[in-house]
Nucleic acid binder design. Structure first.
Lengths: 133, 133
DNA sequence: CTACGAAGTAGAGCCGACTCCAGGTCAAGC
DNA sequence: GCTTGACCTGGAGTCGGCTCTACTTCGTAG
């Protein structure tokens, strides 16, 4: 184990649910807010902050934000103060998309639930007939 | 225009929002409940039923059901009566997944909304300072 | 009779997001 | 000193879901 706050890539993979492959991939794609530190032998050493950032990125990905847009956001954060409006824009736009996604998903859910109901009724009616015989 | 109930692939594309490419692809993948009829010159002729079925498939796709699973479901429907329990299983399983997806999406939404709120506060406080000067 | 547009087929290509591979370093344990 | 296991790099491969290409065939309009 690395000293105190430092985590290896394997440990981060465990804690975030990402694969080590994905972690290296994300780094190469520039979606880590701070340059990942390196320990002896060139090994990556992650801090808790890195994990927190990754967890947010995971949320963004899960909700469908494409990697390039996460990179744009990350770059703004890396640049530091002064571009908060731009960051806000990205987030709001994404929020909008997620909202739409949820509405769509709800529509799908309604249809599926309707169909499940119909099939359940049907299956039950068949079962009832079988008992009645 | 084809007679009465028959629609060309182009018309179906318009009405469903799928591309003609996608329509042919779906057919090749076996996710049309009934064999699409052919008109003169071997052209596809869709009925309202085909469109209704397609609309359901679109819902299933939108909610993340993979094409092979839609095919399985379609095959059951094509086989006709007697396999309703299997159809129900597929639908219920998918319903479960959609439910989880919605929960996840809501979690993402909460985080994003939280961040948007924080950035809005910050941006407003900066604006207020500027006015105050 | 020529051109156009919409259709047909088979099969190649593309994109995003990983995932895997080959080949190498290094530290620890036997 | 040899194996093992976790890590490193660059680059190739995969997978799903279309999308596009190339070329052909129709039917109608000019």
């Amino acid at each position: 184990m690395l000293d105190d706050m430092g985590l290896s890539i394997g440990q981060v993979a465990e804690r975030t649910g990402l694969s080590v492959h994905a972690l290296r991939f994300y780094e190469k794609e520039g979606i880590l807010a701070r340059q990942v530190q390196r320990g002896p032998g060139g090994r990556r050493v992650y801090t808790q902050q890195d994990i927190d950032w990754l967890r947010m990125c995971i949320m963004l990905r899960m909700s469908g934000m494409p990697v390039p847009e996460i990179r744009r956001y990350t770059e703004l954060v890396r640049q530091g103060d002064g571009n908060e409006l731009q960051r806000l824009d990205i987030l709001k736009e994404h929020q909008e998309r997620v909202q739409q996604q949820m509405v769509q998903l709800q529509e799908c859910m309604d249809l599926i639930t309707y169909k499940v109901g119909k099939y359940e009724d049907y299956v039950n009616s068949i079962a009832a007939k079988a008992v009645g015989q």
